[in-house]
Amino acid sequence: MATRDSDSSPKALIYRGPAACDGCPESVAAILESSSSKFVVKYAGPNEEIDINAESLNEVDLFVQPGGGDLEPGWKHTKKYKKAIRDYVAQGGIYAGFCLGAYLAGPKLGYDILPPGSYIADEADQPGAQVKNYKDTVIQVDWTFHTGPNKGQEQDGRWLYFQDGAVMKLAPNASALILGKYSSNGDIAASVTPFGKGWVGLVGPHPEADESWYQLVNVTNPDGVKFDIAYDFVESIIDWATNQ
């Protein structure tokens, strides 16, 4: 994990490649760059100037696996990075996974960076799920803010972009910061958990989705397009990692 002066901006590396959906890495980058931490962002992947390996990960404070397509093809494109990412987090790095990035944190077809006995599942397949299909839509989440102007507030029923989003099935004894739960059934929609000396932040929906996402699939967010949850997700991972 990179070491930096307290007055310098943290550095983030975002996967961009065939496992990511069009625009997903860039949407996360926009959140990181405009967050209160003002991340300096670089992209990494098979077609980028930077690849994902021990050397490139050692230079950054945060690695992001953005949203993408289905898990099985996504894993085929990313499994070569498993050792580097697993070692990076275990040695003190921070992983942030959005949607497919959350699935890829799991023990099967993934980087295996969850607490023992934990796994990732499809929220659409869970009892009481609000969304029971894999179409692009919106879903309601109860979010507890841990940073920023809304710190300490729980806002129930917030609408977020959703497409076959993940649910975190954490082991009962797992140490975890629960940021968000799906409103309809209380399933974990966003969490931060330890792995080795590092930390893993996962979110099932897409709080980073901008207006273009909604226009592309003709979906409307009843709350309007807001990024306060996206900012809190990112900053809460950093804050939790820094203060534990």
Rank of each mutant, 00 (worst) to 15 (best):
V141E: 13
N53S: 11
Q130I: 00
F63W: 10
W143E: 06
G45F: 01
G110F: 06
V138L: 04
R158H: 10
L57T: 02
K82G: 09
N150Q: 14
K80A: 14
G101N: 09
G67F: 06
K80S: 14
F98E: 12
E123V: 09
D70E: 15
Q91D: 15
F98Y: 13
V131E: 08
A44P: 04
L114G: 00
Q130K: 08
F162G: 01
I113T: 07
A90V: 03
G97K: 09
L109R: 07
E72A: 11
L160H: 07
A96Q: 05
G68E: 08
Q140K: 14
D112N: 15
Y111V: 09
Y161D: 14
Q91M: 12
Y95T: 11
P127D: 09
A54D: 15
H77W: 02
I50W: 03
E59S: 07
K108T: 12
G157P: 12
A121N: 03
N150E: 13
T144G: 05
Y119H: 15
A90I: 03
V138G: 03
K151G: 00
D136R: 09
L62P: 05
Q140G: 04
K135Y: 08
F98A: 09
T78N: 09
Q126E: 15
K79L: 14
I94W: 13
G157V: 07
Q91L: 14
D87F: 05
V138H: 03
N150Y: 11
K135M: 07
E59W: 00
G165R: 06
A44W: 02
E48S: 07
L104W: 02
T147E: 07
L160G: 00
E55G: 04
K82Q: 15
G110S: 06
K135T: 05
V141T: 13
D70T: 14
Q65Y: 09
P66K: 06
Y103T: 01
I139L: 01
L160M: 12
I50H: 12
G97F: 06
I94Q: 15
E123T: 11
Y119G: 14
I94T: 06
P116C: 04
A102E: 11
D136E: 10
